[in-house]
């Protein structure tokens, strides 16, 4: 008997729960040489802003213990170029495309981005990146009222699935998770990166030109897992688990903690086939444990 890996997130139907995280998979082109990307549950694009952004100055990545810092700063070609050049190629893959969107200064840009992307059939869902730590202003997702206002404004003008991506740089993740739910988000994804830094003792300079950056990788997994567990216990909408998922067992831990789906991020940099390996490993685990439906694993944490 086949294993049922199907998951539903809002209106989005995925053939398996393994998505690739925004900013770690480009627009999928770079990965086509390494595995058949149409096997993915969904692809979340590199974040798009209304206007092109050059990103932050170099150096903007740095390795840390079991992790890495990045301060890329949302480098992207802007909405027009994305629609004209990147989207047609993404569409041909035949996997649900989730477009990640953000705005640095003006939350109204979320509305404009959403209204234009809503009209495009190939865009299956939007992930609202209100949690990028590499911008100058305070994160929207660190402020409950700002979160409500952005999510709700997008909700009011769009029928497509909305995923709100949350920052772990908050005191109480359940508060923001509930606000996103109340504002009409169909799902939440967490965690974005943890704000961190690294210093070169010889030069006394930060290893990042932007001074601080976002920490990702295995180093953050236990904290991310705890936050996903807390959020999943607090809301009814699906939670997508992100944070240091390298192996299928990492993904399984997040699902047991309550995640409906997962996103693979930093692992794509180390092993471009990671997402495929995780899909295969997850299937194997379910078979070996005689679990026929992924749904039966979700939230199965024994207390």
């Amino acid at each position: 008997m086949g294993i049922d890996l199907n998951v539903k997130i809002g209106k989005l139907k995925l053939k398996n729960p393994v998505m690739v995280a925004s900013g770690t998979f480009g627009y999928a082109e770079e990965f086509k040489d390494f595995f058949d990307v149409k096997n993915l549950g969904a692809i979340v694009t590199k974040t798009i802003t209304l206007n092109p952004r050059p990103g932050n100055p170099m150096p903007r990545t740095c390795e840390t213990a079991a992790g890495m810092l990045n301060s890329i700063g949302l480098e992207n070609p802007g909405l027009d170029v994305f629609i004209k050049e990147n989207l047609p190629k993404l569409k041909d893959i035949g996997v649900p495309i989730v477009v990640s969107i953000a705005s640095e200064k003006n939350p109204a840009e979320f509305i404009e981005l959403a209204s234009r992307l809503d009209k495009i059939d190939e865009v299956c869902a939007l992930e609202l990146n209100i949690s990028c730590p590499n911008l100058k202003n305070k994160l929207i997702s660190q402020d409950a009222r700002a979160t409500y206002s952005v999510v709700n404004a997008v909700r009011k003008m769009m029928d497509k699935t909305i995923i709100t991506k949350l920052s772990p740089n908050v005191t109480d993740i359940t508060e923001i998770a509930k606000v996103a739910q109340d504002a009409g988000s169909d799902a939440i994804s967490l965690v974005n990166t943890f704000l961190g830094m690294a210093i070169d003792a010889d030069t006394k300079k930060s290893k990042l030109a932007n001074i601080t950056g976002g920490l990702s990788g295995p180093a953050i997994k236990p904290i991310a897992l705890r936050m996903v567990y807390e959020a999943a216990s607090a809301v009814k909408i699906p939670v997508i688990g992100i944070g240091g998922i390298i192996t299928a067992l990492d993904a399984i831990e997040f699902i047991i903690a309550g995640a409906q789906a997962v996103q693979v991020g930093t692992a794509n940099f180390i092993n471009p086939r990671s997402a495929q390996d995780i899909i295969d490993g997850l299937t194997k685990y379910l078979k070996e444990n005689k679990i026929n439906r992924l749904e039966d694993l979700k939230g199965s944490l024994k207390i």
Partner: peptide, 16 residues
């Protein structure tokens, strides 16, 4: 020469 995270064009960490 530049520090690289991915080496395959995905991370945008080695820009010139």
């Amino acid at each position: 020469e530049e520090h690289m995270a991915c080496g395959i064009g995905a991370c945008l960490g080695c820009i010139v």
